[in-house]
């Protein structure tokens, strides 16, 4: 079937299998490989992107469901060569090690801070329950989220 998705501000139309997942559309059709697949049960959040501004796990969304809608991946977050405040906070707070969960984690926090611009540590932790990281123990990811909220306020 034919789907048209606006990916990071660019319109993209392709003929895809009905069952194609959005994450595979992004990776294999749009060629945007930052969004990773970490599981097959919607548990790990590595594939988190924004769909019309709200975070979704793109392994659990069909490409067809994104037809006519806008998707933002981590590649589309920086503007004018400047990192987004959440990206910058991850860098400054050492919120990443191997980097595999990072794109999904960053997008989840972008979404979290849109919903709640001034979260407590507990609220950040609760908000990240669906995103797994095996390297950082979440310590610096939580710090990065709080630092990004601080910068934005």
């Amino acid at each position: 079937m034919k789907v048209s998705v606006r990916v990071n501000g660019h319109d993209m139309t392709a003929d895809v299998e009905d069952r194609m997942l959005l994450v595979h559309f992004l990776r294999d059709v749009a060629g945007l490989t930052a969004t990773n697949v970490g599981c097959d049960t919607t548990s790990c959040g590595a594939c988190t992107v924004l769909l019309d501004g709200e975070s979704v796990k793109s392994c659990t969304v069909l490409a067809a469901q994104a037809d006519g809608r806008a998707v933002t991946t981590v590649e589309g977050l920086a503007g004018n060569g400047e990192m987004h405040p959440v990206q910058r906070a991850f860098h400054e707070q050492h919120g990443l090690q191997c980097g595999f969960c990072t794109p999904g984690m960053v997008m989840a926090i972008v979404s979290l801070l849109r919903e709640n611009p001034h979260p407590t540590e507990e609220q950040v932790r609760a908000g990240l329950e669906g995103n797994l990281c095996r390297c950082t123990g979440y310590h610096n990811i939580v710090r990065a989220a709080l630092a990004a909220a601080e910068v934005a306020s």
């Binding site: 490989t33 930052a34 697949v37 981590v74 590649e75 990192m83 990206q87 050492h94 980097g99 794109p103």
Partner: peptide
Amino acid sequence: VIRTEDPRLLTVGGVYVDDLR
């Protein structure tokens, strides 16, 4: 010293085996 690795991992993502083109 904050990491030199990070800007790439944060903006375009790492290149893991399945990302190889």
